[in-house]
Design a protein around this nucleic acid. Structure first.
Length: 485
RNA sequence: GCGGGAAUAGUGUAGUGGUUAUCACAGGGGCUUCCCAAGCCCUUAACCCGGGUUCGAAUCCCGGUUUCCGCACCA
């Protein structure tokens, strides 16, 4: 078998065991789309639960708004103008240029609004291809948002979930009885017409995101204060690495505000809590020239995969950009306390990339070369497996009886009777099931079983069945604490 | 989007014009063992799609799709 890199290995495992796979494959597939398979679907839900938890414990509230968004909304947000690029390709050497970059050269004019206008400007400008010197002609539009029509109105599939929150600001603030700061989060799909989707779930045309809009009072910086002393790597806009805690980073003005720092910390805690390897993480600050049209300061949480850095969460300071725009375009009162406009910090997570990071982080290999997934038990798709030591002598029936009972308190329980016991442990290891319960001859005699832990392969013998079934949450069972010693 | 490789069971692969399409792992069944993918037997399962060349195509040619690597793009 050829040597796979860690990403290829993860993709291979995902297809084989059922975390995710390419969509529509019986019809030849379609680039940039993937299905979450059965295990991946559970995993994704688990991660969303943790995301919700992280924001709910600080008082956040959740909404769920449509994917299909009227043009007016995205016009106001700036996406319609910023997301439809015009480009020119060199007819000789095929090099492509963004029209914006070519025209906006020396002291020149505004950006054209229509294709006709662009064509005219390109003709007059006599722009030359930088590579081969050929003259550039025939600009074309490049849509980064998917467009659709309904009853003569133009809609787009949303490129981010954020706007669904901004347009609801007034209703949300009213719901929140006027209280600021206000934290609103949303999970859902986002859509971008990527030119070249790559690497499974890492770059897709339709993807899962989770965003939170943190609405802050106009002034002050004491609403949320980071308080962790854990040192992280902060790679600033000048390319300098700071190995300091976020609290220190705020004091040293590496990070712009306490509020911003707090949410960087919250995101870091969330991502590491679900099991992404700390050693693979760093924060990287956006340079001025790469900031989004709405953003003043932005820190990406990046994960190291295959030796290169990949953005998994962005924490952006959007300032008052979005609310101001919607106030202007809609004419609605999106102020608080009269004339004040809330400032916004936005953590925006790419859930699919987090899942990729999680899978790669947890793929472990034993000395005997067999592999296991070291997910935290709360995150593992299945929490426990029930295995008869063999099928004969009533063990199968006894095990099934335990399985049926256990499933009532822990639905994510697997039953596996086929093949040798070692093979079944290995099977559960590969999908990350943290505990296996084995039913053997002593179970028949004395109602006791053996529990085996995934990461260590250690076993606890002589566990009474009733002491398993008496706990409403299997993972909270004190018996499992023994594995921690 | 461009350029170059590639596409064969669930996964990884062998196969340079005529094969019953190779092998391993995984899966299912059985025997054996009875706590870590052991062994033996049986078994399920594949040539990306569409055209063309040819008596004959998994194999050669063209187009498409997907995928990988570069370039570009990534608000």
């Amino acid at each position: 078998m050829k040597q796979l890199d860690e990403l290829e290995e993860m993709i291979e495992l995902s297809k084989r065991r059922g975390f995710f796979w390419p969509s529509f494959s019986i019809y030849g597939g379609s680039a940039g789309f993937n299905d979450y398979a059965p295990l991946g679907s559970i995993l994704k839900n688990r991660i969303y639960e943790e995301w919700k938890r992280a924001f709910t414990v600080i008082g956040g509230i959740e909404i769920d708004s449509p994917n299909i968004t009227p043009e007016r909304v995205l016009k106001a947000s700036g996406h319609v103008d910023k997301f439809i690029d015009m480009a020119v390709a060199c007819s000789k050497c095929k090099t492509r240029y963004k029209l914006e970059n070519i025209i906006s050269a020396p002291g020149s004019s505004r950006i054209p609004e229509t294709l006709k206008e662009a064509d005219e400007m390109v003709r007059k400008g006599h722009f030359k291809c930088e590579k081969c010197g050929n003259e550039l002609t025939n600009p074309y539009e490049f849509h980064l948002m998917f467009q659709t029509q309904a009853s003569d109105e133009t809609f787009y599939l949303r490129p981010e979930t954020a706007q669904g929150i901004f347009v609801n600001f007034k209703l949300l603030l009213n719901y929140n009885r006027g209280k600021m700061p206000m934290v609103v989060y949303q999970q859902g799909k986002g859509f971008r017409n990527e030119i070249s989707p790559r690497q499974g779930i890492i770059r897709q045309k339709e993807f899962n995101m989770a965003e939170a809009e943190v609405f802050l009072p106009e002034s002050g910086d004491d609403n949320f204060i980071p308080d962790s002393n854990e040192k992280l790597i902060l790679h600033d806009m000048n390319g300098v690495d700071h190995n300091i805690s976020i609290s220190e980073a705020v004091k040293n003005h590496v990070v712009g505000s306490n509020n911003h720092g707090f949410f960087m910390q919250l995101i870091y805690n969330f991502v590491t809590r679900i099991g992404v390897d700390k050693k693979r993480l760093r924060f990287r600050q956006h340079r001025k020239d790469e900031l989004a049209h709405y953003s003043k300061e932005c820190w990406d949480l990046e994960v190291n995969l295959n030796g290169s850095w990949l953005e998994i969460v962005g924490i952006a300071d959007r300032g008052t950009y979005d609310l101001s725009r919607h106030i202007r375009e809609s004419g609605e009162n999106l102020y608080y306390e009269g004339e004040k406009i809330a400032r916004v910090i936005e953590p925006a997570a790419g859930m699919d990339r987090i899942i990729a990071a999680l899978l790669v982080s947890n793929m472990k290999r034993r000395e005997n070369t067999y592999s296991y997934m070291s997910f935290p038990p709360e995150i593992s798709p299945y929490r426990v497996a029930v295995l008869p030591l063999q099928k004969k002598d009533g063990l199968l029936e006894k095990a099934r009886e335990l399985f049926e009972a256990l499933r009532e308190i822990e639905p994510y329980t697997v039953f596996d009777e086929s093949g040798a016991i070692g093979r079944r442990y290995a099977r559960q290891d590969e999908i990350g099931t943290p505990y296996c319960i084995t039913v053997d001859y002593e179970t028949l005699e004395r109602d006791i079983v053996t529990i085996r832990e995934r990461n260590t392969t250690k076993q606890i013998k002589n566990v009474r069945i009733e002491s398993i079934l008496n706990f409403p949450l299997f993972l909270k069972n004190p018996i499992l604490k023994e594995f921690q010693n």
